[in-house]
Simulated scan of single mutants.
Amino acid sequence: MKVIQNIIGGLAGALALNILHESVRRVYQDAPRVDLVGEEALTKIAESAGTEPPKGDKLYAATLAGDILSNALYYSVIGTSKKKNLLATGLVTGLAAGVGAVTLTKPLGLSDAPVTRTDKTKALTVAWYTLGGVVAALTIKALRK
């Protein structure tokens, strides 16, 4: 039961992150464009595997699905902490993901411009991943009651 609660919490955090990202990026030019980083990564992975990467809407959909799945799994780890530590674990886990998104993109061979374009973009990237971690932690905590 605890594993399912963790996965549901992780999914809630991932969905919160992606809903925020997808909503704000359409109206605010300094919004992070993690979707572009994901599309670049998926294209490179497909090409290195010798397959034709998806294009257009199919690339976008595959990237969004992969992002939600990977973030859900990542955020579900928050549930391995004790109930009294869930919120702190969610904060730290989300913060680590945000800092990683800003600092690891370039070393991984991807363009970091979509997440480092301005100081606001960097701050929003870190804040949004942190929010995802908090949502995951609060969801897991609520499910444990």
Rank of each mutant, 00 (worst) to 15 (best):
T80Y: 14
A101V: 02
A113R: 13
R117Y: 06
G100Q: 06
K58W: 11
A88F: 14
I78A: 08
N71G: 08
A62M: 15
D67Y: 09
K82E: 13
P114V: 01
L95G: 03
V99Q: 05
P107C: 05
G50L: 10
L95W: 03
P107R: 10
S76H: 03
L95M: 08
S76T: 01
R117V: 00
A65V: 12
K84R: 13
S70R: 15
V102H: 03
V115A: 05
G66I: 08
G94M: 02
E52K: 15
L86G: 01
D57E: 15
G90M: 10
E52S: 13
G109V: 05
V77P: 00
N71R: 14
L108D: 00
V102N: 07
A72R: 08
V99M: 05
A101M: 12
A101G: 10
N71L: 15
L110N: 03
G109P: 10
G56N: 08
P53T: 08
A88W: 13
V99K: 04
T116S: 13
K106R: 12
S70M: 14
K83A: 06
L95F: 14
L86M: 06
A101P: 00
D57C: 02
A61R: 14
L108S: 08
K84G: 00
P53H: 06
N85H: 14
K58Q: 13
T103Q: 11
G100W: 07
D57I: 15
P54S: 09
T93I: 07
V77I: 14
P114I: 02
S111Q: 06
G66L: 09
L110P: 06
L95I: 07
T89A: 13
L104G: 04
P107W: 08
G90T: 11
K83Q: 12
K83C: 00
A61K: 14
E52G: 02
K55I: 08
V92Q: 00
T80M: 14
L104P: 01
L59A: 12
E52F: 05
S70N: 11
V99G: 03
T80E: 11
A113D: 12
P54E: 09
A113K: 15
N85Y: 11
A96N: 08
G79T: 05
G94T: 05
G98R: 03
L87V: 15
P54T: 06
G66H: 09
L104V: 01
